[in-house]
Design a protein around this nucleic acid. Structure first.
Lengths: 337, 337
DNA sequence: CTGAAAGCGCTTACAG
DNA sequence: CTGAAAGCGCTTACAG
């Protein structure tokens, strides 16, 4: 079953393929007669132009690639949504790839997307610059979002990781906490590294306990958050405050607290990085380090569009905001250290 | 900056484009010499074949389309992940589209995906058969997943909606509940309709209260779950048990309970449709109607692959499983009607 | 305003 | 085993 081509349309309309093409792409001057004939013919035949053929001739495909580490992470799902909606406004279709927090899958998606000749690529990358040589050689306009890669000359849209973590630690310290357990992200990611560094600096700044055991290394997925909570709560001198470096690890960690009948807010202070809708499930509500994910997605697209247009857009860093809720009451309200 | 083509590679390797093509696609007989020369040339030039040109010649693009209603719904995020991983195993890239629970965006994605000449399409559709004429005319192999469209001759992978809801209502009735509030999904979706129908049947079967006010119509998104919970809890005679037809509405509804200091499990029984990771945030844990999303995604891909191969695969219905947890204790345990 | 022709980058019978 | 040639479906200078 060969699908109908522009030739079929042209034949039926009694014009040449060239004229049919002009009419269908709303191009230049075409006669009233031609327009009518071609449009009805296309309609009747159910003509659907072959995007492959079109983009072989033109140099653009009107698609952008979006490469994310984990679509099951609500933060990235929100980001994907924001990017896709914004891209639509510019007439771009978003091809989405899920690297599954795996270097290998990331590489293979970069490959495939470049083969598909996407007009641009938005990625939350992992690994190092040399792993992304294809992108960084300037083969295609690229924007990094949320995460970055050292030494890459690519515009980025990131959040103020350091500021958010510092605010959270200061907040806990002000509440009287001196032992703060930290569930860190993977150090292969820029966000994992920056947040940990900021945590360590803030611990020093506030005079909190620098015990190395207070840092557990997770992988941004929920099981590692659970493992981290278990590890920290089982320490000889367990921390009375926990800070987790992303939303999925927070979910895992809170789950462990629930299992153990530890009451968040009274038995344990808790701060989560990222503010996701599902956090309203927690009672009392979680104190979080929040970002404007929607703005992050929009801006990433805007920078990419500018790049595609040949401009050299400036990177932007979005502010973090500490939202204090019931999970971090002052110690006098009943938190036994 | 023209990207390197197979001609460039051929020239550098001192062979014809035809030979270069054969080597690069691991085709038929090629000489040892040719293979070596072409491979090194391709390597040196960083040659990346143009997928557009290739799929214009061949008839397949090695891509499938995945059209989902809402990527921010964890159920669909999990499904997307499962589909994508399975498709990868067969060498297919997944082009992902987010219809945003909008008919219009769904239509435009169907259009774009057909234009991109995806080899097959997996969709959780909404609306009616006539809205999807392109798909249903057999233009491209299609599988519906989770949701279906009446009168469409398309293989489907669905969950046993009716069985799950019936089990939940019976469970609540056995606990002594006679007034059960139901937050329904949109009636433009097959899942919304089937679940509501099953709810009504089970209410009759168990002799529960058939008051029409006990059904609130939501839209599968969290804000409507919150609105539904407020509506139901504000009734003159509010239900002491709530059942929500998906995970996002459950999140909204539980959030309202938290706001109102209603203790789930003691003040109110709660059952959620779908079991998502974030539900571990709730304490006590939620009773849920669970499915094997992973199997659903895998099967959808398997059916599609079969269809692409020219077979006529059978639709499959996956079982629902009621998982009873702390949010639905027996009334004697303290639920005041 | 319109058509004939060339060409985008690849693949594949067809000869040899 | 290999090359010349045709063709996938479109678009776009080039003439007219």
């Amino acid at each position: 079953m060969r699908s109908t081509t522009i030739k079929d349309v042209a034949e039926r309309a009694g014009v040449s393929a060239a004229t049919a093409s002009r009419v269908l792409s709303g191009h230049s001057a075409t006669s009233e007669d031609a327009r009518l004939a071609v449009r009805t013919a296309a309609e009747e035949l159910g003509f659907r132009p072959n995007a492959q053929a079109r983009s072989l001739r033109k140099t653009s495909t009107q698609t952008i690639g979006l490469l994310l580490p984990d679509i099951r992470n609500p933060f990235f799902a929100d980001l994907a949504h924001a990017v896709e909606q914004r891209a639509r406004e510019f007439g771009y279709l978003t091809l989405f790839g899920n690297a599954n927090e795996s270097q290998e899958q990331q590489d293979s998606y970069v490959d495939v997307m470049l083969s598909q000749r996407v007009d641009g690529l938005i990625a939350a990358p992992q690994g190092e610059a040399r792993d992304l040589s294809g992108l960084l050689a300037g083969e295609v306009p690229t924007v990094f979002v949320d995460r970055v890669v050292d030494g890459a000359e690519v515009p980025t849209v990131t959040a103020d990781n350091a500021g958010g973590i510092a605010d959270a630690v200061r907040h806990l310290a002000a509440l009287g906490h001196t032992r703060i357990g930290y569930i860190a992200g993977p150090q292969a990611t820029s966000t994992g590294r920056e947040r940990l560094e900021a945590f360590r600096a803030a611990v020093v700044e506030t005079g909190s306990d620098q015990d190395a055991d207070l840092v557990y290394f997770g992988d941004f997925q929920s099981a590692s958050g659970a493992a981290g909570a278990r590890f920290l709560l089982d320490l000889a001198v367990p921390p009375a405050a926990l800070l987790a470096a992303d939303s999925l690890m927070s979910i895992g960690a809170v789950g462990v607290c629930n299992e153990r009948m530890l009451s968040i807010g009274s038995d344990l202070a808790f701060v989560a990085y990222d503010d996701i809708e599902a956090f309203t499930l927690v009672n009392p509500a979680l104190t979080v380090i929040a970002h404007d994910v929607h703005a992050m997605g929009r801006l990433a697209v805007d920078l990419l569009i500018a790049e595609i247009a040949g401009e050299s857009p400036q990177s932007v860093v979005l502010p973090s905001r500490l939202i204090i809720r019931g999970s971090t009451p002052s110690l006098s309200e009943g938190n036994p250290v």
